[in-house]
Design a protein around this nucleic acid. Sequence first.
DNA 1: TGACGGAATTGGAACGTTCCAATTATTAAG
DNA 2: CTTAATAATTGGAACGTTCCAATTCCGTCA
Lengths: 347, 347
Amino acid sequence: MAKERVTVIDIARAAGVSKSTVSLVLQGSSLVNEATRAKVNAAIRELGYVYNRSAANLRQSKSKIIGIVVNDLTNSFFAELAVGVDAVVQSAGFVQFLANTSEKIERQREVIASMREHGVSGLIISPARGTEASDLAPLVESGIPVVLVVRDIAGAGVSSLTSDNHAGAVAAVRHLIERGHRRIAFLGGFADTAVFESRVRGYRDALLEAGLGPQSELVIGSAPSRAGGVTAIEQAMMLKERPTAALCFNDAVAFGVCDGLRARRLEPGADFAVIGFDDVIEAKTAVPALTTVSVDPQGMGERAAELLLKQIKAGRAEPEAIVSSVRLVVRQSCGAAAERRMKEVSS
Amino acid sequence: MAKERVTVIDIARAAGVSKSTVSLVLQGSSLVNEATRAKVNAAIRELGYVYNRSAANLRQSKSKIIGIVVNDLTNSFFAELAVGVDAVVQSAGFVQFLANTSEKIERQREVIASMREHGVSGLIISPARGTEASDLAPLVESGIPVVLVVRDIAGAGVSSLTSDNHAGAVAAVRHLIERGHRRIAFLGGFADTAVFESRVRGYRDALLEAGLGPQSELVIGSAPSRAGGVTAIEQAMMLKERPTAALCFNDAVAFGVCDGLRARRLEPGADFAVIGFDDVIEAKTAVPALTTVSVDPQGMGERAAELLLKQIKAGRAEPEAIVSSVRLVVRQSCGAAAERRMKEVSS
DNA sequence: TGACGGAATTGGAACGTTCCAATTATTAAG
DNA sequence: CTTAATAATTGGAACGTTCCAATTCCGTCA
């Protein structure tokens, strides 16, 4: 029962042609006669041939693999990003090699090395916290196209695709100010990331623009998770002057903030306004539906993949830094929808 | 700047040894002298050599890749499963090839074919809805070790790792009955899956055991998502005789049910008892914390990977069907924790 | 000194594909 | 019927590694 591997040579023999012809058929070449193509395909089915990509890769010294490395797959933002990438990558005839680093630089180094050994033709990386340009240097020198996504790294010399975090935060805070809020917190996230930095900067700028001084005690970091959101809002509610609204680092934190609010018998959307960031799928269906800055992770994954494929096709391309625009999606959790409904009725 | 690929031969030349010796070093063979090993390693670093796995795979006709195909990566249950697999697989020196089928049989066929072409040494599959034994036949005939996870497929002739859905459902429903509930609903999930079938069977058996007749109108299917949970509970509340408690198909549905309850000004845990299934990470931190049947997706991923690695090592092993036990984790959403606290105080 | 044995090293063949240049078959034109 | 042009097919080399059998090295013992 231990079957020998069937190779192009076996197919060739069965179909009465040469291995070169079989190879041509495999590649869908137009050079081969329709009748022989049929014969060959029949033999392939007959013998249960499976293509050996290792051999092909070796010969052509290139593969149809693209690698994607994410820092936290259990965060649904990144899971969605990955499925976005997968969708376009596979429809371009590539296959995706996905690795999760759990924010560990060392693990990231390993998986990138492993991907290079497998001869990926390109890499999409959402770098782990603390990744520096020097960590990526050997990779970019090798000339493999790389697209950094979500988190950019200064001086890395590769393309990047990030969201306009600053503008998103500004829009969210302006909206809260319009709704009459004066004490607005920024909750969650690790302070040492570029994403955090730009979102907080947007938050500060919007506050300043409205003449509301910098309220440093209202910026409260935490793990960027649901649990982190709970602790952040608890901390915020310990202040003598409590906030009445919060912009959260991401949607997971925002959900945690809602949880923490309810634990204190406060209803998010009614008693306290909360705005998230990212617009993960659950944001729409949660109760109250989450007002959030839509980043469209899946769409970002798709665009990153397209950018990468373009670079692969073009050979060596100039690195470009794309910042994709975001928009505020107003739902219930900031209390705005209700007010607007009233306004619509009264006008 | 276009660099030539550096190969073992270049290393050999630089280190003044033969390519065979370099190969030995690469494989960590004990045959090679410590001094030469050092020389070779120095040359490897010096020239920036990167191992070509395609060539190695071709020669040895085996790879260090294991494939994992899941039916829905955006569901955090499966994302966690994947990270569990990744953890053990990578510490065994393998690398993970992850693909998402989005429940599409056709896509599943493609990714499995692609993985075979890449010469994976084993496959962990959480099959798409409607997958039949015949879909997997060519794969299992090829002798590649396969472990089915989460969803078993009758007659496939491969190992499987599932959770004890029946026992979990029985435990959950018994708990609700003990708490005094008499009208208990089963909410969410697609009726044509084996997982649904066994959970509902457990639900029915527990009801029967307590002399509560079959309450067929209380079994309400829906998409196994948060949005699905909202619609299911809405439907349940339209009945003339409303339920007072529900066992949900999974945690996502349970969260949706909580949302739907709140939309009707009912507080989950106080006014209505809800129990989930799976115990995803958010279950613990949600408010109210979700009572749920713990399936430990990450642990399941780890066990599936271990099972697969064992089979790969053993060559051809007898297929085994493992059903991993589950346990009811009582938190707040079923109202039990509060009662118990009262009891503890009074006793 | 020579023979022996274990440790370390080595050249060449092989893995299954693709590419290239060359060959053969077919058709069209004169 | 010959020649040219085009279409279809082909054998062999090459890709970078590992494996095998063979060889060299070196110290030890008689």
